[in-house]
């Protein structure tokens, strides 16, 4: 019973990690940009959701949508102002994203103060029976919303003109240019989409935990672990990697104190890097051991 219960908890957190990791994989796959500031967009999603619920209308589904939309706008702006100029330089991308983390986190401290805030959605605390187990509506919502978002993303990437163009640009940028795809627009769209997903994640997690300036730090590390586990560049791998990490860390609490769950996850990361550096679902690159 405890195993099943932790599996459900893990599935819920794993969905959030998957949402986070997929955004990073999209940005890296299409633009070759490693955006460590993805975590602050996740955090911004939590704050935007709180702001909408507190100051606009206390209707959680609308707050979720507006947070995701706000995250997409932030992403498009960041791509245009910061990352577009740094596409060719990985070290500069890392420096810029670390700088962005400091700027945004301190900006939030200035605006909202150091106290954590809570998104209050009493209805979502309702416990619904699931066989012998009980889960909250918020947990169900997280899994369902992430599932729908992933299915929608899959359909967008495989069926739509723009989604196919994104995949094309990720495979051969020069060929994409010669068939008439504007790389700048594709990059802006990719960043917006990835950031929208990150902000959605922050808004989904907000009612379960607190919203605070560093709330994106741990999902960033777990998201990166999910990417390494799944194989850099593989969207499906990132989803499976995220879910696997969520379940693994939840189940680990049955064997060791809760404080050790991050240790278990990062031990797995090191193990994967040693044994299969291209990830469980990734492909070995030429020259890679």
């Amino acid at each position: 019973m405890a195993f099943l219960e932790q599996a459900l908890n893990g599935l819920m957190m794993g969905s959030i990690y998957a949402l986070f990791a997929v955004g990073m994989v999209l940005v890296f796959g299409v633009m070759r940009v490693l955006n460590f500031a993805h975590g602050v967009i996740f955090m911004a999603g939590g704050y935007m959701c709180h702001a909408v619920m507190t100051h606009v209308v206390a209707f959680y589904p609308l707050a979720l949508l507006l947070s995701a939309a706000g995250g997409a706008v932030i992403g498009a702006v960041l791509e245009r102002l910061v990352f577009r100029r740094l596409r060719e330089s990985l070290p500069m991308q890392i420096v810029a994203s670390l700088g962005l983390i400091l700027m945004v986190q301190n900006g939030v401290l200035l605006l909202f103060g150091p106290e954590a805030v809570q998104i209050s959605v009493p209805a979502m605390r309702t416990v619904v029976p699931l066989g012998p187990l009980g889960v909250t509506l918020q947990q169900v919502l997280i899994v369902v919303v992430v599932g729908v978002a992933m299915a929608g993303l899959h359909l967008f990437l495989t069926r739509s003109r723009l989604g196919t163009a994104m995949r094309a640009a990720s495979q051969d940028l020069q060929a994409a240019r010669v068939v008439g795809i504007n790389p700048d627009r594709v990059f802006a769209l990719t960043f917006a989409l990835a950031s929208g997903l990150a902000a959605l994640g922050g808004a989904l997690l907000g009612p379960l935990f607190l919203v605070f300036p560093a709330m994106g730090d741990l999902p960033l590390l777990k998201g990166l672990t999910a990417i390494v586990l799944g194989g850099m560049g593989s969207v499906g791998g990132a989803v499976l990697g995220g879910l696997a990490i969520g379940v693994l860390e939840a189940e680990s609490t049955l064997l060791a104190p809760t404080d050790y769950r991050d240790l278990v996850v990062f031990a797995v990361l090191i193990l994967v890097l040693l044994v299969r550096p291209y990830g469980l679902f990734g492909r070995r690159l030429r020259g890679e051991p």
């Binding site: 163009a165 995949r167 094309a168 495979q171 020069q174 994409a176 010669v178 068939v179």
Partner: peptide, 15 residues
């Protein structure tokens, strides 16, 4: 300069 991870149909659509 084909897109290797796209199908022939998708490559033509991208054309």
């Amino acid at each position: 300069s084909v897109f290797p991870g796209l199908t022939v149909a998708e490559n033509l659509r991208m054309g």
